[in-house]
């Protein structure tokens, strides 16, 4: 297999974990995505963006089966914050868990756009294609997601000033307030 395909699949698996909150369910979703892609491989346009096409299929597979995925999610809910790599330093892990907890609290439609752009590296145009939305909708959702995230992380302003307002989501403030 080409490295590109493997990289795309690993990106799909990561995004699916965000959607499903369960590693096994996420891999089931990726399998369903690949089965659909194989069935409709003839519709893939030569020169098209394979990654965007796969994300579009994955999104549609998730949406069309989301009742089942949502039901399973309540039974097996994975805490995103607990999934942070053990190789991270304690300090960076705490920061990552804080960011993940904040992402977890975003409305679904904002979280999806934010993750596809900021984590998976898609452009807003590509996200519009993958989610079947107007690009203006993607941009406004992305702006709102970033705004909400900033507020959830303590309303931090420019870089360098955030330590004064840092909060632990779900716990006490680090400065003891």
């Amino acid at each position: 297999m080409t490295p590109d395909i493997v990289a795309h699949i690993q990106g799909l698996r990561r995004y699916a974990r965000f959607l499903c909150r369960d590693v096994a369910e996420a891999d089931d979703l990726v399998q369903e995505t690949l089965e659909r892609a194989i069935a409709h491989a003839g519709q893939f346009r030569p020169g098209g963006d394979l990654r965007v096409w796969l994300f579009a299929i994955l999104h549609n597979a998730f949406v069309s089966g989301r009742r089942a995925y949502a039901r399973r999610r309540t039974e097996t809910s994975m805490d995103l914050a607990s999934a942070v790599s053990v190789s991270a330093t304690q300090e960076s892990r705490a920061e990552l868990q804080r960011v993940l907890s904040a992402i977890d609290r975003l409305p679904d439609e904002r979280r999806r756009v934010l993750l596809l752009v900021a984590v998976e590296g898609l452009t807003t145009d590509e996200v519009a294609v993958a989610l079947g939305l107007p690009v203006g909708t993607v941009r406004s959702r992305l702006a709102r997601a970033r705004d909400s995230l900033r507020q959830l992380l303590g309303g931090r302003g420019p870089a360098g000033s955030r330590s004064a307002t840092m909060r632990v989501v779900g716990g006490r403030d680090v400065d003891g307030r």
């Binding site: 690993q10 990106g11 698996r13 990561r14 974990r17 965000f18 995103l80 999934a83 942070v84 790599s85 991270a88 960076s92 892990r93 920061e95 990552l96 960011v99 993940l100 992402i103 900021a118 984590v119 998976e120 590296g121």
Partner: peptide, 8 residues
């Protein structure tokens, strides 16, 4: 950092 930490 989130993307790297949750990389598969």
């Amino acid at each position: 950092g989130v993307g790297d930490a949750l990389a598969v």
